[in-house]
């Protein structure tokens, strides 16, 4: 009897996958291009998302994760470990929880690599269908975040590379700073329409471009 039931969520035949924003309507005035836009919003849909749980003080666990993912395991709130070339990132979420984002369709393979490398008390759970990633960028992206969240986004408190999870409007989001004026937001599927349109609404005054 196996202890854990892994699951390949992806069809082997051609099936149209829909992002959480599939039916969202843009109801504010947007710009036709990024030219002159204060804010750009782009969805990175259908990526692989996993939750990893385990004991950070267990050297074997840390080494196993690092060998499976090829990036270091962050041990406190702060910089997200990333390998942008491979599209892999690992973010500290809590003392025993990490968010792993991998390219589309690689969630099961990532889970399997982790399971092969780990033992003892840990957990890996797929959440690829549960969330989506938005890129928020532009000279006014910071203002949009300040309109939406109570966290301190000043570089002194939120340098490039850092990732957190906090409230966003009346929902929550994972927020990562990927550049001076570039951010990633990871939001829950069921709240995605609300948050996407909230961000558009908050961005409208700066001129907003929705990249497809």
């Amino acid at each position: 009897m196996s202890e854990i039931a892994t699951f390949n969520a992806h069809p082997t035949v051609a099936v149209r996958a829909e992002s959480p924003l599939a039916f969202s309507r843009v109801t504010v005035a947007t710009l036709a291009s990024a030219q002159g836009a204060g804010v750009c919003i782009r969805e990175r849909a259908l990526l692989g998302h996993l939750i990893l749980r385990g004991k950070a003080d267990d050297a074997g666990f840390r080494a196993g994760v690092e060998s499976a993912l090829g990036v270091s395991l962050p041990l406190k709130m702060g910089p997200v470990s990333r390998d942008d070339g491979r599209g892999v990132s690992v973010q500290w979420m809590s003392p025993d929880e990490w968010l792993i984002v991998v390219p589309a369709g690689e969630d099961l393979a990532t889970e399997q690599r982790l399971r092969a490398a780990l033992s003892g008390h840990y957990a890996v759970m797929q959440v690829s269908g549960a969330q989506t990633l938005l890129e928020l960028s532009g000279p006014n992206a910071l203002e949009v975040l300040k309109k939406s969240a109570g966290y301190d986004f000043h570089p002194r408190n939120f340098p490039v590379g850092k990732g957190i999870s906090t409230t966003l409007a009346k929902s929550t989001a994972v927020i990562r700073r990927t550049g001076d004026t570039q951010w990633e937001l990871i939001i829950r599927r069921s709240f995605a329409d609300y948050l996407f349109r909230w961000l558009l609404d908050a961005s409208e005054e700066y001129g907003v471009f929705v990249a497809r």
Partner: peptide
């Protein structure tokens, strides 16, 4: 901004 459609979040399923 918490008024009208943003007064309270609306959550949707994938089939909405």
């Amino acid at each position: 901004r918490h008024c009208n459609e943003f007064f309270d979040p609306r959550r949707y399923t994938a089939l909405h």
